[in-house]
Design a binder for these strands. Structure first.
Lengths: 182, 182
DNA sequence: GAGCTTAGCGGACCGTCGGTCCGTTTGTGG
DNA sequence: CCACAAACGGACCGACGGTCCGCTAAGCTC
């Protein structure tokens, strides 16, 4: 990979990250804006990331790594319910901290949330925990339901909820769903 | 209201309904398409419905009325859990029957699912039932979570699930969440 | 039924956006 | 240092949502 290519790629990511962090509405950030902010031509932008979604995915991937790191760092070893609750809490925190970016990712249209690489990952993890807690029956769907309960636009809709309120909600949901009822 | 205005409004709704019913991707239906299919000028289209979202909302409203009627017709009088399950089942059925239209409504961007008039309605109803079943604590959030579990793009994502599989999932979720744990 | 008023019409037009194309520049291996 | 390909960048394109305004005809008045 040529040196300038690397440099430009980095510049684009940095600029885009800055723009998404500062914006209030993902749709207000055009690809031209990103290119301009990165001091790069539009062609370069599209050659590196394919299309808008590609760029957003790349950004999300980077931020997501930090989340995964955080999560790996202090993973609670308690019962499944505790681990699920912990994960959901972190997901909500992540989506609040990266509002515009996650909105851009999950609202790109055409079932976009489900096309993110990370979705599969969280879903598998959750399904396992659910299964561990209450048996395999419907664990798959319940994992989807849990993830749906922390979707970025719901987080957005409940914008001004305090941490406590979120916590109460997530706790109630998790405990309910993960309670063994076999 | 002038006669031709009424006629045109009707023509647009009919044409749009037809188009949405036939399409596989909401984004492939442009406002020009709708106007052309209705045999009407674009200006007329926008004067009647304001913008794209207005049109989709109008359509959804009409279809939604049928759903409400269905729901009012055979409402089960059992315990809250049964009533919630019934509602969720019907919502899923509705979203499968009106795939493209509900996708258009819920994917219009900017938290669109939460801006539909009907959302508030279902949420209030569910929150009441949840509260009745397990007390007011977090009932609000749990109702949101239940609705998130039947969001149109999740339904879409799980596209080929059989009725039985959906039923198992919804049953598990509903029973879990509505179980009194006070 | 004629005439007048105005609600309603329609389609040319506009700005924006995602994405492409291609002539030009620039990094790099030999 | 040269040659050549890789990378660049911005003019360009087609599509789309939405607006504007000159024209049409609906419907009221007398």
């Amino acid at each position: 990979m040529r040196a300038d290519a690397v440099r430009n790629r980095e510049a684009v990511l940095a600029a885009a990250d800055r723009l998404f962090a500062a914006a209030t509405d993902p749709e207000r950030i055009s690809m031209d804006d990103v290119a301009a902010a990165a001091g790069v031509g539009k062609g370069t932008l599209f050659r590196h990331f394919g299309d808008r979604e590609g760029l957003v995915r790349a950004l999300h991937g980077i931020r997501g790594d930090r989340l995964r790191t955080t999560l790996a760092a202090d993973r609670p070893d308690g019962p499944p319910a505790e681990r699920v609750l912990h994960l959901l809490r972190e997901l909500v925190r992540f989506k609040r901290d990266n509002r515009v970016l996650t909105l851009a990712l999950e609202n790109a249209g055409n079932g976009s949330p489900y096309r993110a690489e990370s979705y599969e990952e969280w879903h598998t993890l959750l399904a396992g925990l659910v299964s561990e807690a209450r048996g395999p029956e419907a664990a798959d769907y319940l994992a989807h339901a849990l993830l749906a309960a922390v979707r970025s636009d719901l987080v957005e809709h409940l914008g001004d909820w305090s941490d406590e309120r979120w916590d109460a909600g997530l706790t109630a949901l998790t405990r309910s769903v993960l309670r063994d009822m076999r």
